[in-house]
């Protein structure tokens, strides 16, 4: 590398601009490949983007903090996007109101199932306590899960990773399970994806059907609320 190129790289590699731009490019490559190959579930754009960026950071030797200085502008939008979930809820209020009781019961069962299955499996496979606590809120959307994790004594940064991987798992394998069990109702498919795999599941559900998307958004929001209230109490009782 010539001296000038070196200088440009030194400037760019630490500036937020580069990593913000590369995050957008990586996601668009992921989306492009996904559509090109007829949307195979395993080539989830979020997964592709994460792998591309991790490889890039490893190869260039840039640390995550430097990367995040740029990527934080995207990360920040998770908060406003969570607020914006009020819109699909409002739009589909009539449909949702009609199955109000099934929603509440399903939500309570699903929310508890998400926590128990996560905690139970970590415990059964001999995971440490810090992992158990970090994995417990895994089905809840990132900003909420990180908050809960911090509160109950987990590692918020590990929780963030587990949450994203959980979302990808739901988007990748959700349709397979739902088809296998012949769950064809749009509202049931939406509830399942939203409760188990939060925003990434919801993004997947919105692409399939408007009703599934609205129920998924509702399930994700209510599950966030429910888990945020339930989990700290549960952990307190178990300790």
């Amino acid at each position: 590398m010539s001296a000038e190129m070196q200088q440009v790289w030194v400037y760019l590699s630490t500036s937020p601009l580069l990593w913000l731009t590369l995050t957008l490019i990586a996601y668009q490559i992921g989306t492009w490949v996904f559509r090109r190959l007829d949307c195979p579930p395993l080539l989830n754009p979020v997964l592709t983007a994460i792998i591309l960026l991790v490889v890039l950071l490893k190869v260039s030797g840039i640390d995550y903090q430097t990367y995040f200085r740029g990527a934080q502008f995207i990360h920040f939008l998770l908060g406003p996007a969570t607020v914006a979930l009020a819109i699909p809820l409002y739009r589909e209020m009539e449909v949702i109101r009609k199955s109000f009781i099934p929603i509440i019961i399903t939500l309570a069962v699903g929310s508890v199932a998400a926590i128990i299955s996560a905690v139970g499996i970590v415990w059964a496979l001999g995971g440490e306590k810090i992992i158990l606590l970090s994995v417990a809120p895994k089905s809840v959307t990132t900003p909420i899960a990180m908050g809960i994790s911090e509160q109950i004594g987990g590692l918020p940064s590990l929780t963030a990773v587990v949450v994203v991987l959980t979302g990808i798992t739901g988007a990748v394998g959700g349709d397979f399970i739902l088809n296998l069990l012949r769950i064809n109702d749009d509202n049931a498919r939406g509830m399942a994806l939203g409760v188990a795999s939060h925003g990434i599941g919801t993004a997947h559900a919105i692409q399939k059907s408007r009703v599934a998307g609205a129920f998924s958004a509702l399930a994700m929001a209510l599950n966030g609320l429910f888990t945020a209230l339930l989990l700290p109490v549960l952990v307190h009782l178990l300790q």
Binding site: S99, I101, P102, I103, I105, T106, V109, G110, A113, A114, S117, A118, V119, G120, I121, V122, W123, A124, L125, G126, G127, E128, I131, V135, K138, S139, V162, L165, T166, T169, G170, G173, G174, I177, L178, L181, I183, D185, N187, A188, R189, M191, A192, L193, V195, A196, S197, A219
Partner: peptide, 28 residues
Amino acid sequence: SWAPISGAIIIGTLATIAITGLVMKFLN
């Protein structure tokens, strides 16, 4: 700790989808 973490993510998530979907279908 790949086993407990990946187990919780993959099995836990798919089980949650199955349970939630079945309960909602039944209640519908």
